[in-house]
Every structure is written in structure tokens, then in C-alpha cells.
Amino acid sequence: MSDIAKAFDHGKAFIAFLTCGDPDLDTTERLIHAIADAGADLIELGIPFSDPTAEGVVIQEASLRALSGGATAGKILDMARRARAGAGVPMAVMTYANVVFSYGTERFLDKAAEAGIGGLILPDVPFEEKADFAPFCRARGLDFISLVAPTSRERIARIAGEAEGFVYCVSSLGVTGVRDSIDGDLDAMLGLVRRAAKVPAAVGFGISTPAQAAKIAKKADGVIVGSAIVKLIERYGKEAAAPVSAFIRAMKEAMR
């Protein structure tokens, strides 16, 4: 069983995303420990990209703050290695294709594997292009995590059939960011995913409240939350550990 799959071992998984280096890497490292202690089952480490085309304004701005603070892929993976050794929670890296490609895909994945990273998520690499990355992940024991969207329809069987780690189900149209309601037809999407996938299905994009998390945890194996956490970090900066912990505890509680 892969490191990522273990995240789904103890009930519904809560998956937390944060942009590394926002506001600085020391804070990110403290936040990772706080997020793990608060009960998150998997942490997605966002490596910032200058032009994140799948992100809403919250993560766009966090990415720019992190980059202007000097965060780089190399520094983030060094930090992740220390954090992973201390916090016993599985971790995946989420970033954009050019960050990995520019570093050198194999060199990047060597370093990620050494750091104890279990998976890679690239929102700008669909099924058709995954051959650029997935085989190199597999060779190092990392899962290349695939996304399905409300528009995927007949594509779901193929994508989910080859999925590794978990299937990242995009809840609704549009980019990342807090939404008042999740209006996509989740039941239909999850039905198609489960028919084809051998791995769990987690839902993300737009989820920010315990009520939403509770509702989605009834249908899916995991709930992914990004922008709501990044917003807390934007607001509280270096003092974000306590409010982020409290938020995650409330979300976990609602998902029980």
C-alpha cells in the first residue's frame, strides 16, 4: 500500500493544502506540525508557481507572497524532508508542470522521494499528458494523482481506471476557491469514479465549512480543503498555527 493510500486507513480522510513559503518557510514548517496534530490525514504541499491557471485569487495571491519571500522548489523539499521526519502524516506535492519540468523531472522526483513525499499532483497535466511525469513517479514509489472534473463524463472510466493514490474529484466548474454551495452533480461523478477506480475518491474545490465537509464526507472517502486554510494563513501570518488547528479540528469533527 502506498503512503498516500494509508491516509484513507482510518475513516474519512481530511486532506489539507497549504502554499509553502507563505508567509515564510519556518511558518510553513510549524503549520505542517500543527495541521498533523489537529488530525489531518494527508497534507498537500503547494509549491508556488508564478501563473497558477487553475487557482482562484486566494491561492494566486498566496503563491505570489511565497515567491516574493524567496520560496523555491529546492528549499521547500528540504523543509518537507525535516517536517516529514517529525510529523507522521503522509504528504503529496501539488504544483504546476513547469516547476517540476524546469527543475528536471527526475531530479525533482528524486529529491521529493528522499523527502518522504508520497505523491505528485499537477493540475495542468491531464490524462493525455501524464506520460511526461507518471512513469518517473512510479519508478520512485510516488503516486501520480489524477483529477476528474464535472465535465469529465465518459473520460472518468479511463482516468479513474489508471488512478494511483486517490482520485481527486473536482467538485464544481471553475478554479479553486471558497464557494457558498457545491452545485455539481457529485453523486453521478462519484458513481462513475467508484465503478472504475481501485483507489479512494476525495473531493476538493470550494469546500470551506464544517457543514459542507460533513455533507461531502457522507459521499466521498475524503475531503480536500485549500483556499479556506490559505485564507487563515493570509489573515494570521506567522500566528496562523492556532486558528488553522482549530479550523481543522472543527472540520474533522464534522466529518465523523
Binding site: A97, P126, E129, A131, A149, T151, S152, R155, L173
Partner: peptide, 22 residues
């Protein structure tokens, strides 16, 4: 190699949400 290639260049590096549209 995926569709729409000019040598190594081109391809379709976009979010899954847009794939059926293209």
C-alpha cells in the same frame, strides 16, 4: 506523445475541467 505536437512542442497541458471542451 499526445495530440497537437510540433516536434516536442505543443500538447494539451490544461486542467481536466477543460479537456472535453478542447
Amino acid at each position: 506523445m499526445s495530440k497537437g505536437r510540433f516536434g516536442v512542442h505543443g500538447g494539451q497541458y490544461i486542467p481536466e475541467t477543460l479537456m472535453n471542451a478542447v
